[in-house]
Design a protein around this nucleic acid. Structure first.
Lengths: 243, 243
DNA sequence: CGAGCGATTGATCGCCATCAAAGTGGGTGG
DNA sequence: CCACCCACTTTGATGGCGATCAATCGCTCG
């Protein structure tokens, strides 16, 4: 899971190809000025995916990098017998393609309809080389993702089911909080299914469901709909998340 | 867990401060020529730690970066009630300091006696800025660590105790295999205690011990000493590691 | 209105944790 | 040099959390 790490950037003139991009100030584009953005855009293309579509397969050659402009993605890995672990979710503004390997280490799928800004890896690499601060930005993104992944190691290695679910809700809330178009940090939208949550938290869907029910019974959350949760007592939720 | 990612580099003249460094070709130093290495070395200092010493505390301000020259380190994080998760181990040649945050996210401790090459973060950052390919190298390191951490997520989220222990032994073997001074990929040295292994694998020490005993009984490994294991059937071990 | 899928709730099972005790080995002091 | 000590490891007995198996609910869409 990543945070948008928003940047300040000047407004674009009308007609610029990125002028109406919702995530222009996030991810890597926020570090670029108009001219650079135009230059980069020339080698990019908008691509759309439907719910459930696969963007990249684990093991495939990594020919492109992407910026997620709308929707939510999941990064997952399968064991031979079908057990699945979701390594993280990507939200609008997130960059997809931090790797030095030739092959994708994870399968990336669209949870709902999603649009991405795609660049050929070769051209992107060349562009990065010509813009050193982009390199630094990519490094910062990688370092940030690394910290998040290691935090998730603590969750998977040592937390109870209740702690995992509480942590997950707070993570999502923080994520929305740091995003520009957040309604409120209290109202968390879960774009993913219970199955996705379970595979992210190292649990089964029944356990996720039970823990959510328990949180509701304790008046810590309110299940507005299946995919909308209101945090009623953030403080107690934080205590619960950390054991 | 990281791999050394060795580089080719010219021999140093006698008297160079890094001439007798065992890990000069690994980590980030391998990407530098003599003059650059000398320049970097001027701002660095060798520091030694004893078994159990803490190099950095979780939450402390990150004032330095390090290159591990000898020994093994563990990166760990504690929950308020004392539960511990080890996020990874560092081996000679590994770089310590991939972060964009001001504070250390993890506690780093020496498992046995260890020596490190230390640099003030401010000076190191300046040096990196002046040497763009170092920046790229750091990015590659971060990407590599990220891939390793995400692989560990699969282990912690979805693997059984037996699979975790088998995976761990193979990871260590791969690690030694890619290191120059490896005796043989069959003979794995475990510098860390059973407690460290358990906290890395999300298990208890009793379970680690039991699984090692079981592997021995199945003739998959041989416990030369408590901290030396010989892999007798790598193929079956690999099957076991992946479920 | 009915079909079908995802989510919830309930009952039972099993893996690994926990509690407990014995074994082992390395280091120190007599 | 040896005996003791202490920490680490191994082995054994039992228990609990979350998985598994199973049934029902409820929403969405034809």
């Amino acid at each position: 899971m990543t945070s948008p790490l928003a940047f300040n950037a000047p407004l674009l003139e009308q007609g610029h190809p990125c002028a109406d991009c919702a995530v222009r100030l996030l991810a890597i584009c926020g570090a670029l000025n108009n001219d650079e953005l135009g230059e980069l855009k020339q080698s990019g293309a908008n691509v759309a995916f439907a719910a459930g579509d696969t963007i990249t397969y684990e093991g495939d050659v990594a020919t492109h990098v992407y910026n997620l402009t709308s929707g939510t993605l999941r990064l997952s890995k399968l064991l031979p017998d079908g057990r699945r672990q979701i390594a993280g979710f990507l939200f609008p503004g997130d960059f997809l393609g931090i790797t030095m390997e030739d092959e994708h280490a994870f399968t990336v799928e669209a949870i709902g309809p999603a649009t991405l800004c795609r660049f050929a890896r070769s051209r992107f690499d060349g562009f990065v080389e010509a813009h050193p601060y982009l390199e630094r930005r990519l490094y910062a993104l990688a370092a940030h993702e690394l910290a998040a992944a290691r935090q998730q190691l603590v969750l998977l290695g040592r937390k109870t089911a209740a702690e995992r679910v509480a942590s997950f809700l707070l993570m999502l809330a923080d994520r929305y909080e740091s995003t520009l178009d957040a309604l409120s940090a209290r109202d968390v939208i879960l774009p993913m299914s219970r199955s996705d949550i379970a595979d992210y938290l190292g649990l089964r869907i029944e356990t996720v469901s039970r823990e959510l029910t328990a949180l509701k019974a304790s008046r810590l959350i309110q299940l507005t709909t299946t995919h909308n949760i209101r945090l009623l007592d953030r403080e107690r939720l934080e205590l619960m998340a950390e054991g």
